[in-house]
Design a protein around this nucleic acid. Structure first.
Lengths: 233, 233, 233, 233
DNA sequence: TAATAATCGAGACGGTACGTCGCGTCTTCTG
DNA sequence: CAGAAGACGCGACGTACCGTCTCGATTATTA
């Protein structure tokens, strides 16, 4: 994972779903008061919560000012945040882990599938993909980070691992259910079908960032892939 | 474009748009009278052809040795190639342009469409996508460069511009023909249809580099998207 | 003086001038009514005696291991001694004061002058200089600290102030007595004469640390300076 | 020696007299035009002469402003001199070598002995010691550097090696001549006699920097040591 | 016995400097 | 004039200490 140390030592670090967030602060907030946690008597001065806030703010601020991601040196971030370099290195092993953490902190939660029909679930899933793509072009932060995210292979990788993969698994489950229930042909590979459905949207989101992501696109993709391209009479 | 100056004459410079060798033209104009000749009588010592060979060899060699793309500094490339830094900067404006040039030098030509049937052309197009994906995992150079190509936004961008986009246009033309000839529903947006077809393969090629790219995949994608996922009886 | 605060009561604080334990007095005054008692009933947990022992041991140990004085950071000393940095800063204002304290703790007492003859007293004084010089080359601690003591101007200065100056004054007194009693020419400046006598030994002790300090040197210096270099018949 | 690289490769690097100065520039100036020197065709851009001037000026300037020697970090010197840190490290291995170079650049040449009488030569030698001591207290640079020179063992060591030792050897030769010619008792060790003579002045110069160095001191030391302290009638 | 208060080890904190590396430009000599 | 060599100002790297500041825990005195 990305964080350096900390992380409440009771957190299992399961990397299977989006609930990992070993960030400590964030986790603490989500887990509740946690007064009874097996908190093993930390020694020394505890890490200031204000630091990551300051660092994140600095990064967002610099990106807002139009500073390209490649120019966001640790040095500069520390200077802007009014924070010591060592303090940053104490929390993150490098720029990439920092960005991953920042990115995750603004990532919307996984969609909740209504479960009424497979088609409906697929639309919801693809719609969430579409919405993330749209968010990328709206949010100043997301826009900048995503636009140049490819700059950092590890960032890319971890992002996939913690964000895209979990949703992909949701998709696979839904496709499988569709086959079981007879809504989808069952003579095809599940992964293959899933790629047919998500590929077009990911293409427009990741590879061709200028492409249209109009509302209704998700539904249209699902329906068209379901129906096929052959002309009907 | 990427090259700083002349561009090896002989390289077809396939993709027209954006005016091939722009700086080359400009340079030619500045060099003097030029006497009307297209290759305007350079003065002084001519550029050694050996230089780019040495530079390319150095890059490939370093990548083969496992040096990550991110550690390929101009400094190191020059050192390895036994070439002055200034000589490199005289030819390319930076690392990215160098890589783009190198990448283009090993890129296979655009596929030739048989034109017999729209389905056949689509399969050929997607098959070339698949083959490139496979090549990425075979060629030591391609593997390394691609695997971390995302590191360089401009490299990524130029690559798309010079390699992916042209093929995309081929795809759009084919889809249009399919609609005109009645092989494809004509109630859909051409770009949309093209994305439905290419998305799955690009997904596996670019976004999920570990995914299977088995032979026959291209054909299967075309057919499945054509037929749709709805169970037939 | 060097110590930050209390100063172990019991340490005689030999060298008067500069008002012994200045900060101690001040602290005492600030602590409150003080009820008249000289050691005004400190409150809270008293300082552990073990700390300075641990710190001194750590310094000596590191020097013994060959660690150069310049690399003895407070950080490292604290780590080695198993002591908190703040605890060190609570006692000494910096590295130099710590070293001064350590140095003084191993400094032999001022020599006792027999007072029989001026020549005898001078020999005793110079002999003590010689012995200190020899000790520097024997004791692992003294060797290391002295050899690089010049590294710390304040250490040097304080050492002179508390060790060399007092003995210098002893020397001046003796020379004066010699003049009064007719053993030494009285047409010369007292300081000048003293420098003639101590200069050679200090030269070999401080400035040319490799020079010989054989037994009998002190006596020979006194006698030769007394007699002069001119050949006698 | 102190310099990092450069140094005209023909210079023998004899460390026996003050004529070592491998500084290149200085040597070049002293050696003459040296047009026929075996200068082995340096490659690449030659080192700018302006750099050491700028660096030396920066150091002197900072010391003049009262910045203590200990705060003269390479970083700060570079900043003040308007010079890259790497440029400094290219020439000197560290602060100490830089200071040694600077110090040597302002060191007066060895005294020329008249050779008429041994006493006269000794006076000249001691007078040069005295003058250096006086210079230390006059020159802003020397004052500051010397006053805290002890901070840098290597600086101290190299200074002794290149400046003090050579003159010491001059002194030893003179004392030997004095013994041979009957001006000095020959029943004493030469080094011992030399230390008797130079010790007092070095004491006042190096160890007790506040002591008086009035004109005539050198002569007085020689005469008094020659005559002895015993009262004459 | 309980409250109070200074100490302790530990280590986070904002800084500054370290010595190295790469950037893109420049300046020299050689072919 | 191109080319290699490499110096140059610049700025970032990741580490080490600086001296200060919180922490929880410990250990005295005072109430």
């Amino acid at each position: 994972m990305s964080r350096q140390d900390g992380g409440t030592p009771g957190t299992p670090e399961t990397h299977d779903d989006g609930a990992a967030t070993p960030t400590g602060a964030a986790t603490g907030a989500l887990t509740g008061p946690a007064t009874g946690a097996p908190t093993g008597a930390r020694r020394g001065r505890p890490r200031s919560e204000g630091v990551e806030r300051a660092v994140f703010d600095a990064v967002v601020g610099l990106l807002d000012e139009g500073v390209p991601l490649a120019e966001l040196s640790i040095e500069r971030i520390a200077r802007t945040a009014g924070v010591g370099k060592a303090t940053i290195y104490r929390r993150w092993t490098g720029k990439e882990e920092l960005f991953v953490d920042l990115l995750r902190s603004v990532e919307p939660p996984d969609p909740v599938l209504p479960g009424t029909s497979v088609r409906g679930d697929l639309v919801v899933l693809l719609e969430s993909l579409r919405e993330r793509g749209v968010a990328k072009r709206t949010s100043s932060l997301l826009h900048n980070v995503f636009a140049q995210m490819q700059l950092y292979p590890r960032l890319w990788e971890v992002y996939h691992h913690t964000v895209i993969e979990p949703r992909r698994r949701l998709g696979l489950d839904t496709v499988r259910r569709g086959m079981d229930q007879g809504e989808i042909r069952d003579d095809l590979d599940i992964e293959f079908v899933n790629d047919l459905l998500t590929g077009p949207l990911l293409l427009r989101t990741v590879i061709r960032p200028g492409a249209s992501l109009e509302p209704g696109l998700a539904e249209r993709v699902v329906d068209t892939v379901m129906e096929g391209l052959r002309p009907r009479d």
